[in-house]
């Protein structure tokens, strides 16, 4: 009984100090989805809550891209954060739930291949070499650096990468191996990219990959490897500028927002939120601040136009697609 008394007192205090007026149903924006996209959405939501304090409300979850689509296609949420395009099975689920969607690229994540700073031999990697390292056939076979390129030293090669549930892994395998979700299994996998940073930083023979932000925050402990762009033949460093200009390809991947078009019209909150999200004046700065690569401003303008015209459907026909520039994505034909 005593326990309840004490907790009750705490609640009374908390409740009295922090009560806020209740907001009507159409004035709430429900967002869920990818934890990769979350920092951007959190930043926009924060600004949104400051601007519309007491008027509209935003909630953001991190069920993952797939878990988020489950809710989105049932109509539980208004917007889904996605670190990859919608999949075939999810399109069917949305069709079954009677939910349509507007697909909006909102930022770019440059997948960064990193090595230990003690590694002074790798100056550039080609996609073919990356494939040789990561392909399923390499399992147990490609274990030394000189097996990747003969003039590299005969030193052990250890690999670090995100777990198979992550969108980063999906995209990387699609881009490098050519088949989504196909890779060797004998590498150190972690859902927490900070663990990968630790691993590569402490292992002279290591090679790993993750989002650019994790490299940027650990510049002193890691070295990013330039990757040869197959279209131009030049070795390109992963950086915000190179990803934005499209030179860092094909390991730049777009991040998406999927918006339920009906909710844009049922209440003012969702429309106001999306409008703020695509405001080039604001979003470019926010995306940079949380460590991702903003689209060129033209990208946000095209995205806004897509929202105004209520263009639904996806420019992808299932699976992670590689090497498309964002403008090309936004100009592409969509299918529901």
């Amino acid at each position: 009984m005593r326990r309840h008394g004490a907790l009750g007192a705490l609640l009374v205090l908390g409740g009295l100090a922090l009560a806020e007026p209740v907001v009507a149903e159409g004035d709430i924006v429900r967002i869920d989805g990818s934890s990769t996209v979350y920092p951007i959405t959190e930043a926009v939501a924060e600004e949104f809550q400051i601007k519309y304090r007491g008027k509209y409300r935003v909630t953001v979850g991190i069920s993952g891209t797939g878990g988020g689509f489950k809710k989105f296609c049932r109509g539980d949420t208004d917007i889904n954060d996605a670190s990859r395009p919608i999949k075939e099975s999810e399109r069917e689920a949305c069709a079954a739930g009677g939910v349509r969607y507007i697909e909006l690229p909102i930022a770019i994540d440059a997948l960064t291949v990193v090595v230990n700073p003690a590694n002074d031999w790798v100056d550039c990697l080609t996609m073919e070499e990356l494939r040789r390292i990561w392909a399923p056939e390499a399992q147990g076979k490609v274990v030394r650096w000189n097996q990747v390129r003969p003039d590299w030293p005969d030193r052990p090669l250890t690999l670090y990468g995100p777990g198979v549930d992550s969108g980063t892994y999906d995209y990387f395998t699609a881009a490098v191996v050519g088949r989504e979700g196909a890779s060797r299994g004998d590498y150190t996998a972690s859902e927490d990219d900070n663990v990968l940073v630790q691993g590569v930083a402490g292992d002279p023979g290591a090679l790993g990959f993750f989002g650019l932000a994790y490299y940027e925050e650990n510049r002193g402990r890691l070295r990013a490897v330039p990757v040869r762009n197959p279209a131009t033949g030049e070795c390109v460093e992963p950086s915000v500028e190179n990803a934005r200009s499209g030179r860092y390809a094909p390991l730049s991947r777009p991040l998406f927002l999927y918006v339920n078009p009906e909710r844009l019209d049922t209440g003012p909150a969702v429309a106001a939120f999306v409008d703020m999200y695509l405001d080039p004046e604001l979003i470019v700065e926010l995306v940079r601040e949380v460590g991702y690569v903003p689209l060129p401003e033209e990208g946000y303008r095209l995205a806004r136009r897509r929202v105004e015209a209520r263009v639904t459907g996806t420019a992808f026909h299932g699976g992670a697609q590689v090497g498309l520039s964002v403008e090309a994505l936004l100009r592409a034909e969509t299918v529901d």
């Binding site: 009374v12 009295l16 869920d32 939501a45 409300r57 935003v58 909630t59 953001v60 979850g61 991190i62």
Partner: peptide, 18 residues
């Protein structure tokens, strides 16, 4: 708790119990 729909960003509090 994540599975049953706990959020991460939420800038308002539940209605006061009193």
């Amino acid at each position: 708790v994540i599975t049953v729909g706990a959020l991460t960003f939420i800038a308002f509090l539940p209605p006061s119990p009193v």
